[in-house]
Design a binder for these strands. Structure first.
Lengths: 349, 349
DNA sequence: TATTAGCACTCTAAGCTAATGAGTGCTAAA
DNA sequence: TTTAGCACTCATTAGCTTAGAGTGCTAATA
């Protein structure tokens, strides 16, 4: 599709633009990348690349700037894949996350911080949602006369808790009985599966009319229903340093995006199924406010089930090769941590 | 100190400036506030007020702008105190926080959101720290072969949990015994008190050499040590709409402030002891990056002990009367909620 | 035929000037 | 004591010019 010369020029333009957000001129390309052609020739090639949609001109007498299509081509064909010396990242991940292995929320929060510091873009992480979390155990503890605390332990070390008001007042003994029942029935399943089974069981239960069990099921349902994915984002300070965010309107957009965590979950969820690192460039994105941003994500796993997502959000003019490998490394790191935390449990299951 | 005329003028200037961040001119004051003097007279008065430090001029031929001292005088003497029609706020607090009574973290998070929406400034909340939290009960639950989950229930409905690796492997029975011991010893005390007593007990324990108990104490200490206050801030989108934040540098400052939660805790802590609503205006603040911001806080209580802090951060040009009553109402509301959640427990104590 | 040198042309960014106007301080009159 | 009048200051804006970077086209060159 593109001859070697065009590719060289395209690469040069994108590479230069990633390092410095000034439109790239023909003269500059020949000089800086010491190509064996004159500026005039480069101009012709650039004109061709523009016609093909890989480059564009902000105005007639300016240099060229990559388009989304240009970046896409770059990511898929031209990128330097061997940016693997993330010693620094691994070090700081290890250092920061060491003590947090068992509390995945703090862990993810710290992860986003580490990602943003190393990438200078926004770091983002989504905790396992109902599909990704496996129930390990459920505990019921009396809290006050008419309230009980329901505590869910999951495989990822998440502990979800809720204090529920209940009409019947259970003895500690009752609670133990209920808990034992629930554990027997549900532990080892994902939250999503449990929700489904709860519906079935509760339908069945209408016939059984066992108050204790039906109470148990409804308790369980209450907690499950508020079990959602959680988003962590950090690095606002980092991206404010980028020249593309010197415009107030742009900043407002970003801030709206960040504060609306609901929208972020939705966005990320659509990328969660795919294997490996996902790259969405600029207008490929569906969300209006992110059409000038790129997002790179990868899923971390718990066992072999995808659990949650980590990633980076930055301008389309992003250092893709570095960002992609950062995300990749981080996702693998998290997967490993979850593995260590959970293996003795999976063995016993 | 100030005659009635000067006060009228000062009030007019501040009132006008709060509504619209343009330097206020003498002509404008006579017109808008229909004072019985000519612009020339007003000018004289303004010159006096400037000399006294209540007003200042951005440049020679501009109108006047209130100084921090001016705002301080306004807040203490001139403010309209009867801005109590916070029906909307109470409604939305009630609606949003209804389901969250027992999870104070989510509760505070939602509170900041509500505060920011109603004030159009940053909403801020700090959860009870070790001084404010009273231990209600402690539970120990086996998590895996070599780990146990320690769960703290506090009076504010906070549940703090940590999963600890321990060298000895305790039976469920052992754990129950330990838990009973810890509850007998420590429930009803604040976290801070417990930390102190732990130190004493552990010193004593050297003589006793009771492994189970000493293990219990060390477990307890581990969890206690990570018990800190938690900050919630929201409303970035709101304050970005204000004209004072049209400058990128200002935004960077704010974003640094927001992301450094540690600094915020420190700042807020210094205000936590005082009774009622606290107002810190501009450079009265110690933190360099907040010298152009004002902060309004109030403590919410649990029983009669101060628990945590809620507040608003905005520009010095802030609608103080509305902001102050917003914060006041919100703090009372939280206190009430905590009271409802906890009273049956305190009865029994 | 592919490449390149040369040149006229385009467009932005930066700097300069002048005009505008809001607001002041001072003085002298009421 | 208050106020009208007036000269003065200074930020803001618009208009204009210049410099410079980069282009596209054409004609010469290898």
């Amino acid at each position: 599709m593109l001859d070697e010369r065009s590719i060289k020029v395209l690469w040069a333009v994108i590479n230069s633009y990633i390092n410095n957000p000034d439109p790239v001129g023909s003269r500059y390309v020949t000089r800086k990348y010491s190509l064996e052609f004159s500026p005039a020739t480069i101009r012709n090639i650039m004109a061709d690349l523009e016609e093909l949609g890989f480059l564009s001109q902000p105005h007639t007498s300016a240099g060229r700037v990559p388009t989304d299509k240009g970046y896409r081509f770059y990511v898929e064909n031209l990128m330097d894949e061997n940016v693997c010396c993330h010693k620094g990242l691994i070090d700081s991940l290890t250092r920061r996350l060491e003590d947090l292995r068992e509390d995945i929320y703090t862990l993810l929060d710290e992860t986003t911080r580490t990602l943003s510091i190393h990438s200078h873009y926004l770091g983002i992480a989504v905790s396992p949602g109902p599909d990704g979390s496996t129930l390990r155990r459920i505990e019921l503890i009396p809290y006050s006369d008419d309230r009980i605390a329901v505590i869910l332990f999951t495989n990822e070390g998440i502990i979800k808790h809720k204090i529920l008001k209940n009409n019947f007042s259970f003895s500690r003994n009752d609670l133990n009985k209920i808990a034992r029942y629930l554990n027997r029935e549900f532990s080892g399943y994902t939250i999503k599966e449990i929700r489904q089974r709860l519906l079935e069981e509760m339908a069945k239960d209408k016939e059984l009319c066992d108050t204790l069990i039906s109470q148990a099921l409804s308790l369980c349902g209450d907690v499950m229903s508020c079990y959602g994915a959680n988003v962590f984002i950090s690095g606002l300070t980092e991206i404010l340093e980028l020249p593309e965010f010197s415009d107030i309107e742009k900043i407002k957009e970003i801030s709206r995006t960040i504060e609306d965590k609901h929208a972020v979950i939705k966005l990320i969820d659509s990328l969660a199924d795919a294997e490996g690192v996902q790259v969405v460039i600029g207008a490929e994105n569906r969300v209006e406010e992110m059409k000038t941003l790129s997002i790179i994500t990868s899923t971390y796993k718990e066992g072999d089930k995808p659990a949650g997502v980590v990633g980076i959000i930055g301008p389309t003019r992003m250092d893709y090769s570095s960002a992609i490998s950062l995300v990749d490394v981080t996702a693998r790191f998290l997967t490993e941590i979850l593995d260590e935390g959970g293996h003795e449990w999976r063995k016993g299951r």
